Simulated scan of single mutants.
Amino acid sequence: MTEHQSILVGVDGSAESLHAMEWAAAYARETGCTLHLVSSFMLPGFTGSYSFAHDIPMVDDPYARRYVEDLLVRAHKRVVEVGVPATTEVTTGEATSVLAERSAGRRFVVIGARGAGGFVERLLGTVSANLPVRAQCPTVVVPLHAKDADGDGDATDTRRTRRIVVGVDGSRPSEAAVETAVAQAQAWGAEVAVVRAVTMVGWSHSPWLDTGFRESVMSSARDETDRLRARLATTYPDVVTTTDVVEGHAVDVLVAASQEADLLVVGSRGRGGIRGLVLGSTSQAVLRRSRCPVLVPRR
Results as ranks from 00 to 15, higher is better:
Arg289Thr: 10
Ser17Arg: 01
Leu295Phe: 05
Ala261Gly: 12
Arg122Tyr: 13
Val294Tyr: 00
Leu99Tyr: 06
Ile111Gln: 07
Arg106Gln: 13
Ser204Gly: 03
Gly170Thr: 03
His19Met: 04
Arg196Tyr: 09
Thr235His: 10
Val98Ala: 04
Arg162Trp: 06
Ser258Gln: 10
Arg29Ser: 14
Arg289Phe: 03
Val110Ile: 11
Gln186Glu: 13
Glu94Cys: 03
Val133His: 13
Ala250Trp: 03
Gly115Ile: 10
Ala197Pro: 13
Trp208Arg: 01
Arg65Asn: 09
Asn130Gly: 15
Gly115Met: 12
Ser51Phe: 11
Leu123Tyr: 14
Ile7Pro: 12
Val266Gly: 02
Cys33Leu: 05
Val98Gln: 02
Gly167Lys: 00
Arg74Met: 02
Thr34Gln: 13
Tyr63Arg: 15
Arg102Ile: 04
Leu209Gly: 13
Glu191Val: 06
Asp169Pro: 08
Pro132Leu: 08
Asn130Tyr: 14
Arg196Ile: 04
Glu16Cys: 12
Val80Asp: 08
Ser39Ile: 02
Gly202Trp: 06
Ser219Phe: 09
Arg65Ile: 01
Gln186Val: 07
Ile164Ala: 04
Val73Lys: 07
Gln136Arg: 15
Pro138Val: 12
Arg106Tyr: 13
Asp252Thr: 13
Thr47Ile: 15
Thr31Gly: 09
Val166Tyr: 00
Ala25Pro: 08
Ala197His: 09
Asp55Val: 15
Pro44Gln: 00
Ser51Gly: 14
Asp169Phe: 00
Ser17Phe: 03
Ser39Pro: 07
Ala28Met: 05
Asp252His: 10
Ala129Ser: 14
Thr87Cys: 02
Val194Arg: 01
Val255Glu: 02
Leu99Ile: 06
Arg214Ala: 15
Ser128Ile: 06
Thr88Met: 04
Pro138Met: 09
Arg196Thr: 10
Asp60Tyr: 06
Gln5Cys: 08
Gly273Ile: 05
Thr243Val: 14
Thr156Val: 15
His54Asn: 11
Arg78Leu: 09
Leu35His: 06
Tyr63Met: 15
Glu191Ala: 14
Thr161Met: 08
Thr91Gln: 10
Glu94Ala: 12
Leu72Ser: 03
Thr126Cys: 14
Val165Glu: 00
Val9Pro: 12
Arg275Met: 14
Ala86Glu: 02
Glu224Trp: 14
Cys33Gln: 04
His19Val: 04
Ser220Cys: 04
His249Ser: 10
Ser39Asn: 13
His76Ala: 09
Leu131Met: 09
Val240His: 15
Leu99Asn: 05
Ala176Glu: 12
Val294Glu: 00
Ser39Gln: 12
Gly112Ala: 05
Leu254Phe: 08
Asp252Ala: 14
